[in-house]
Design a protein around this nucleic acid. Structure first.
Lengths: 115, 115
DNA sequence: TTTACATATTCCCATATAAGCATGTATTAT
DNA sequence: ATAATACATGCTTATATGGGAATATGTAAA
């Protein structure tokens, strides 16, 4: 078997790769409030329709959004559950940034008492 | 000026793009515990040394890690503060997945009382 | 059945990898 | 000064975009 370079993981490989694209984060934030048809996203974010459809495809492939049809409209909504892994991974570092802030605070207080 | 397509945002454009690569998340998790030289990461994660150096370069460029030299060793450590934006963005969806879980729970309880 | 509307898909192309391999650069040891 | 150690960087290559433009698909309205 020959060498096959995985230049960069596919955007559809997981939620991390999918949300790396800023427009996709914008779309998710917009959809967070409420289920919406594609056209609304196009107008709200000022993007081209094909571009929005492609981004939605990626989001759907990784389970970050769900769709249902209503007449000519495709109503997309966020599947928040799929964002949890991201939140939890980042959360494993929470105690470290708290610790860093604590040290900054301590130094500030030390400076105050010295005055 | 001509059209210049940004095929995909640079891995160094922000923390979101930097952590999209699984190996870089592995490196961050490994460094979370403690400051480490490059060689330790190579051994611990079983990657090629140039590969680790390049990943560290990306992480450093977006401020996810800091370095200091100690003799021949370059000691890398996590800058947890840079992971916060990620945690906070994902956190804006927390109430939605809680809400989803709540509905699942309610349906389950409804089913129980019906029996 | 045309027509209009809403969305999805295809094709093209410049760009940015990530891994492998080779080589350059510090810094310490001999 | 030379060798060895620890990293960083450069080069090549196959791959996966994301935007633009055009076109296809699906549904409802006339």
């Amino acid at each position: 078997m020959y060498y096959s370079p995985m230049a960069r993981a596919a955007t559809t490989s997981d939620a991390f790769n999918a949300v790396a694209e800023p427009r996709r984060r914008d779309i998710l934030s917009y959809l967070a409030l409420q289920e919406r048809p594609v056209g609304d996203i196009v107008v709200a974010l000022g993007l081209e329709q094909p571009s929005v459809s492609k981004h939605l495809r990626v989001l759907k492939d990784v389970g970050l959004v769900r769709v249902r049809r209503e007449g000519r409209h495709m109503l997309y909504r966020v599947n928040a559950e799929a964002i949890r892994p991201l939140h939890e991974w980042a959360g494993t570092f929470e105690r470290f940034w708290r610790h860093q802030l604590q040290k900054v605070k301590e130094r500030a207080e030390e400076k105050m008492t010295k005055v």
